[in-house]
Computed example of a mutant assay.
Amino acid sequence: MMKLRTLIFTSVMLPWILSSAANEYTEARKPEEDTVDFPDYGITYDTDTNSVAGPKAEELPTCLLCVCLSGSVYCEEVSPEMSAVPALPKETAYLYARFNKITKISNGDFADMATLKRIDLTGNLIAEIEDGAFSKLPNLEELTLAENKLTRLPILPVKLVSLNANFNKLTTQGVKANAFKKLTKLEYLYLGNNEMTAVPNLPESLHVVHLHNNKIASITDETFCKGNTSYYIRSNMDEVRLDGNPVILSNHPNSFICLHTLPLGWYN
């Protein structure tokens, strides 16, 4: 009888004892959970819906948001929408930030960027540029501000070779008469499709000037030439556009006597 009880006890209790021991051994050997730190790119999570909320453009590193390649930064049609100029690498020479939602250019946007040679901001919503935004860029040669909402131009860097501000809302009050006086290297000036009523003073260095589709109603013998002398030839000027303005060129027969060619386009 004792042998039978011993056999029953062993067959019931022994598996339970072994199972408990195995669990304790497993718990004792369980490693601590490893934690991995991922870079914080400004991504947040909505705890209510458990969905990802994307970062804003200005919260992302520039070369993650844009393409940076050998001194050139390409920030074109950026998603998420870019509403301000991003912080640029110090070696940036060429910036292409076209077709975004940039609304303003501030003095600090290009501070200490002595390497910049070209800036293209075509197709944004820029309505304001602070006066010092470009003036301290010693090597800037090309500036494109076309297709924005500008009513005035800022102070421009003296080494500028090309300025394109077509398709804005520039007025004569916003483009001062002497705005280009100190730009002795300026060769290409595009101010078409604006709201200007007068032609500003044009530097001798100009090869091309486009002023078409403005509101210019009159010009003088000194707008392009020097009315007090018939010997003056404007040798650099190759192309002038004044079409789409209310000015009647036939009323100003001596206004272009110093040029190699007459203005391009159709006129009244």
Score class of each variant (00 low, 15 high):
Tyr96Ser: 12
Pro80Phe: 04
Arg98Trp: 03
Cys68Gln: 00
Met82Phe: 00
Thr103Asn: 09
Asn107Lys: 03
Cys68Asp: 04
Arg118Pro: 00
Thr115Arg: 14
Arg98Phe: 02
Arg98Lys: 13
Gly123Lys: 13
Lys117Thr: 15
Pro80Asp: 04
Met113Lys: 15
Thr115Phe: 14
Thr92Arg: 01
Pro86Asn: 10
Lys104Trp: 06
Cys75Phe: 01
Thr115Lys: 15
Asp112Ser: 15
Asp112Tyr: 14
Ile102Glu: 02
Leu121Asn: 03
Asp109Ala: 09
Ala87Gly: 05
Ser72Trp: 06
Lys90Asp: 13
Ala97Trp: 02
Thr122Trp: 10
Glu81Tyr: 08
Ala114His: 12
Phe110Arg: 01
Asp109Gly: 04
Tyr96Trp: 11
Asp120Trp: 04
Ala84Leu: 08
Ala97Ile: 03
Leu121Ser: 00
Lys117Leu: 10
Pro80His: 06
Ile119Ala: 01
Val73His: 01
Cys75Ser: 00
Val73Lys: 02
Ile105Ala: 05
Arg98Leu: 11
Asn107Leu: 07
Val85His: 01
Lys117Phe: 09
Cys68His: 02
Ala87Glu: 14
Lys90Gln: 14
Asn100Met: 07
Tyr96Asn: 12
Gly123Ile: 11
Met82Asn: 05
Leu69Ala: 11
Met113Ser: 10
Ser72Asn: 06
Cys68Gly: 03
Glu81Ser: 15
Ser106Leu: 12
Ser79Gly: 03
Gly123Trp: 09
Ala84Val: 10
Gly71Thr: 10
Phe110Cys: 02
Gly123Phe: 04
Thr122Val: 11
Lys90Val: 12
Phe110Lys: 05
Leu95Ala: 07
Leu88Val: 06
Ala111Met: 08
Thr103Phe: 05
Ala114Pro: 01
Thr115Trp: 11
Leu88Arg: 01
Lys104Ala: 07
Glu91Gln: 11
Pro86Tyr: 02
Asp109His: 04
Ser70His: 15
Phe99Ser: 13
Val78Asp: 08
Asp120Asn: 15
Pro89Asp: 08
Pro80Leu: 05
Ser106His: 13
Glu76His: 07
Tyr96Ile: 11
Gly71Cys: 05
Leu69Tyr: 13
Thr92Val: 06
Thr103Asp: 06
Glu77Leu: 09
Glu77Cys: 03
Val78Cys: 04
Ser106Glu: 15
Cys68Met: 05
Ser79Arg: 15
Cys75His: 02
Glu77Lys: 15
Arg98Cys: 12
Leu121Val: 02
Tyr94Pro: 04
Ser70Phe: 10
Ile105Gly: 06
Lys101Pro: 04
Arg118Ala: 15
Asp120Cys: 07
Leu88Tyr: 03
Phe110Thr: 04
Leu121Gly: 05
Tyr94Ile: 12
Phe110Ala: 00
Asn100Lys: 01
Asp120Ser: 14
Ala87Lys: 14
Cys68Phe: 00
Ala111Asn: 11
Glu91His: 12
Ile119Gln: 02
Leu121Phe: 06
Cys75Arg: 01
Gly71Asp: 04
Leu88Lys: 06
Asp120Ile: 12
Tyr74Met: 11
Ala114Cys: 10
Gly108Glu: 10
Ser72Tyr: 07
Arg118Trp: 12
Ser83Ala: 14
Asp109Phe: 03
Val78Asn: 08
Thr122Ile: 08
Asn107Gln: 06
Pro86Leu: 09
Gly108Trp: 10
Tyr96Thr: 09
Ala87Leu: 11
Ser70Leu: 12
Ser83Trp: 05
Asp112Cys: 04
Pro89Arg: 03
Val85Leu: 12
Lys101Ser: 15
Leu69Lys: 14
Tyr96Phe: 14
Lys101Phe: 10
Glu77Tyr: 07
Lys90Gly: 09
Asp112Leu: 15
Cys75Pro: 08
Lys101Asn: 13
Ser106Phe: 08
